[in-house]
Amino acid sequence: MEVGYNKRNLERCLCKSCPVQIDSICANERKLNMLDTLANMKEGSLMPEPANMAAIYCSIGKSTCADINTDEICQCNKCPVFSENNLSTLYYCKLGKED
């Protein structure tokens, strides 16, 4: 199933607080930019480039941040985006989106 790349999913995504990227300098910089973008985004605005995101990897594919720690526990299975889209794998930040 294709997971929508949209503001609603971005707002509800748990990646922003996931232990896998909590200590990542790269992901934290992207997260700050992303939160600022979300706060200023108007309804119907275009979504930012996926490469600048630190979230909804189940939609955009794997992270390009080399300093994420996939030895930490993934929380994808606790995410509303995960359950609403009937997803089945974890660590989308490492493995990319489902086919």
Rank of each mutant, 00 (worst) to 15 (best):
E2W: 05
V3A: 00
V3W: 01
G4I: 05
Y5C: 04
Y5P: 02
N6H: 13
K7F: 09
K7P: 09
K7M: 04
L10W: 06
L10K: 05
E11L: 10
R12W: 06
R12E: 09
R12N: 10
C13D: 13
C13M: 04
L14Q: 09
K16E: 11
K16F: 08
C18L: 01
P19E: 07
I22C: 02
D23F: 10
D23A: 04
D23Q: 05
S24C: 15
I25W: 05
I25N: 11
C26H: 10
A27I: 04
N28C: 06
R30C: 05
L32N: 05
L32W: 06
L32K: 14
N33A: 13
L35T: 10
T37S: 02
L38D: 08
M41K: 11
M41L: 14
G44R: 08
G44N: 10
G44H: 13
L46Q: 06
E49S: 14
P50D: 05
A51L: 07
N52S: 12
A54R: 00
A55S: 15
A55L: 03
C58M: 01
S59D: 06
S59G: 05
S59Q: 02
G61T: 12
G61V: 06
C65Y: 14
A66H: 07
I68D: 02
I68A: 02
I68P: 09
N69W: 10
T70P: 12
T70Q: 00
T70Y: 13
I73C: 00
C74I: 06
C76E: 11
C79F: 06
P80K: 08
V81Y: 05
F82D: 03
F82M: 01
S83A: 04
S83M: 10
S83K: 14
E84A: 15
N85V: 12
N86D: 08
N86T: 08
L87D: 13
L87N: 01
T89D: 14
T89C: 02
L90K: 04
Y91K: 01
Y91Q: 02
Y92H: 14
C93W: 14
K94I: 02
K94C: 01
L95D: 14
G96V: 11
K97V: 09
